[in-house]
C-alpha cells in the first residue's frame, strides 16, 4: 500500500532520532521510535504500532486525500488532529477509558498514543454472549452520556470505535477524530443516532439488546434527560429520505 511508504517518509526524522538516558551508573542511548508495524488503514487515517520511548504505542496518521483541494485537506487534517488530542485528554480526566496521547504534530496530521491490545466490538459482537453485548453497550452508553454531560460529542460512536482489552477486559472508546465541543442536545442526539445506525446496519441480530442496554447506560448518567435526547433521535431518523413512519412514536420513548 502506498500510504505505508508515505508514512515512513513522514516519520523519517523520528526513526533516526535517539534519546540519551542518564543513569547514576552511566548513559544509555536508545532509539526514540522503533518497531514500526502497520496495523490497519481507515477512511481517514492509517494506524501503525510502534515502541515510542519504550512504551507500546500506536501512530495515527491522517494521510493526505488526493481528491480534496490541498488547502482544505491540510486544514481538516490539522484541526481534526488537534481536536482529537484535546478530546482524549478531557475524556481521560472524566474517567473514560481511552488511549493516552503521547505526542502530536498537527501540521503533519500525526498523533502518537498508547496502544490498546484488544478486540474491536464490530468484529466480535456476533460471537459473544448477549449478556456481554449488553454489558459493553451499557458501558458505551455511560461513556457517551459522560461526554455529553461535559459538553463533548464524540461524533462517531460506532461498533468500529469500541474496543475490548484482551487482558483486562476493560472497554475502551477510541477515535475522537470527529469530536465537537458543543452542548446542543441535537448534536448529542446525533451521537446516539449514529450508534443505533451502526448497530442496525451491520449487526441486525443483536439490534434490540444493544440499543436497550446503551439506553440503560445513558440513562444511568443523564436520568430523564435521556428521554429528551431519544425524542430528538426519533426526529433525526424521520429526516432521512422516505421514512414511512413519520407519525409513529418510537418504541424507545414510550418505554
Amino acid at each position: 500500500m502506498e500510504v505505508d511508504t508515505e508514512l515512513i517518509k513522514v516519520l523519517e526524522e523520528f526513526l533516526n532520532e535517539k534519546v540519551v538516558i542518564a543513569y547514576a551508573s552511566g548513559f544509555e542511548e536508545k532509539k526514540l521510535l522503533r518497531g514500526l508495524e502497520f496495523l490497519s488503514m481507515g477512511a481517514e487515517a492509517i494506524i501503525a504500532k510502534c515502541l515510542f520511548l519504550d512504551i507500546d504505542a500506536v501512530i495515527k496518521w491522517r494521510f493526505p486525500k488526493p481528491y480534496m483541494p490541498a488547502e482544505l485537506d491540510r486544514e481538516f487534517r490539522r484541526n481534526r488532529t488537534i481536536t482529537e488530542v484535546k478530546a482524549l485528554i478531557k475524556a481521560l480526566s472524566l474517567g473514560i477509558n481511552v488511549p493516552i496521547p503521547l505526542y502530536t504534530e498537527p501540521d503533519e496530521g500525526l498523533l502518537i498514543m498508547t496502544y490498546i491490545d484488544g478486540f474491536v466490538l464490530r468484529d466480535i459482537i456476533d460471537r459473544i454472549s448477549l449478556d456481554k453485548v449488553c454489558e459493553i453497550c451499557r458501558n458505551v452508553g455511560v461513556y457517551t452520556a459522560k461526554l455529553h454531560e461535559n459538553s463533548i460529542v464524540h461524533g462517531d460512536v460506532t461498533t468500529s470505535n469500541v474496543m475490548l482489552d484482551k487482558v483486562t477486559g476493560k472497554i475502551y472508546l477510541i477515535d475522537f477524530g470527529l469530536t465537537n465541543f458543543v452542548k446542543r442536545i441535537e448534536d448529542q442526539a446525533i451521537d446516539v443516532h449514529i450508534f443505533f445506525r451502526s448497530i442496525e446496519s451491520a449487526h441486525h441480530n443483536v439490534e434490540d439488546i444493544a440499543k436497550k442496554c446503551f439506553i440503560e447506560g445513558y440513562r444511568s448518567v443523564k436520568g430523564s434527560y435521556t428521554d429528551k435526547v431519544l425524542r430528538i433521535v426519533d426526529n433525526i431518523r424521520k429526516m432521512g429520505r422516505y421514512v414511512a413512519e413519520r407519525k409513529i412514536k418510537s418504541v424507545w420513548v414510550m418505554q
Binding site: M41, G42, A43, Y67
Partner: peptide, 19 residues
Amino acid sequence: REIAYNSVLEVAARALMHT
C-alpha cells in the same frame, strides 16, 4: 462543489472501510 462532493466522498470512504 468541493465541500459537497468531499463530504459525500468521505462518507463513501468510511463505508468502504467499515464494510
